[in-house]
């Protein structure tokens, strides 16, 4: 039996350090094979069980019913199928994206979603004979957003050594995407590229990103913030 030299309490044989003040126990006569009060095994939280196939089938059933209802309403009221095609396309789009997130990995789901969006916009462009806005505006815009989501998910999921650094990278990518969108709209409007509105959100976003990046290296400050802000 040992005593903590700092706290004055008696310590059970299983305690290598004082649990109260972390002072190591130095007792040459302490038995080495002592009975531990608790085993090493740790319990885990219960897992959430989601039946993905059931959700998938239910979602498509609902989508089918909704699409059929709109098509029938359109046909019986106007005598032909017109506006309801857009509703059906929208429902198909939402269903495809949801299915991609249900079954594929998150990276594949982002790529598939971008592809679905491009396909939807291409069909709408074809139906309205307006390929120009699709080629010069909609398709690049979709690609920029796709790349933005892909990079953000990649950095946050992989954490790049720290979550804060991941968030900083995401913010910087967002700032770059905003500039790219302004350049794109300028080119589509046939104007000269002139950065105007994108500067205003880009500056504070970049400052916050750089701040988070620097903060991520200061572990002591992070621990202090965590300590003071826990609820």
């Amino acid at each position: 039996m040992s005593y903590c030299v700092n706290c004055g309490v008696k310590l059970a044989d299983s305690e290598p350090v004082c649990p109260l003040c972390q002072t190591p126990v130095i007792n040459p006569n302490q038995p080495t094979d002592t009975h531990r009060a608790y085993p090493d095994h740790m319990d885990r939280f219960p897992q959430k069980h989601i039946n993905r196939m059931f959700v998938f089938r239910l979602a498509w059933l609902v989508a089918g019913i909704v699409s059929a209802t709109f098509l029938l309403c359109d046909f019986f009221t106007a005598g032909s199928i017109g506006w309801s095609v857009y509703v059906v396309l929208g429902v198909l789009f939402i269903g495809s994206v949801a299915s991609a997130f249900c079954f594929a990995s998150v990276y594949a789901a982002v790529i598939l979603s971008a592809g679905c969006t491009l396909a939807l916009l291409a069909i709408i462009a074809w139906m309205n004979s307006g390929w120009k806005w699709f080629v010069y505006l909609a398709a690049p815009f979709t690609l920029i957003l796709g790349v933005l989501f892909f990079v953000c998910i990649l950095t946050i999921k992989k954490k790049i050594k720290s979550l804060l650094r991941g968030i900083a990278v995401c913010l910087l990518v967002c700032a770059v995407a905003l500039i790219a969108i302004e350049i794109l709209t300028d080119l589509y409007g046939g104007q000269l590229v002139h950065l105007y509105w994108s500067i205003y959100p880009c500056v504070p976003i970049s400052v916050i990103a750089i701040g988070l990046f620097i903060l991520s290296f200061n572990k002591k400050l992070l621990a202090e913030i965590k300590k003071r802000t826990f609820i």
């Binding site: 004055g8 310590l11 305690e15 649990p19 009060a37």
Partner: peptide, 30 residues
């Protein structure tokens, strides 16, 4: 649920100061 042991430390130290012996054990992780 916190890492700090201040409450327990001051609690048991007070008992020791009042001449009440205390024996401690914990679920420390190796």
């Amino acid at each position: 649920k916190i890492k700090e042991t201040d409450t327990e430390k001051y609690f048991f130290q007070k008992l020791v100061q009042l001449n009440i012996p205390v024996e401690i054990e914990s679920n420390h992780r190796s």
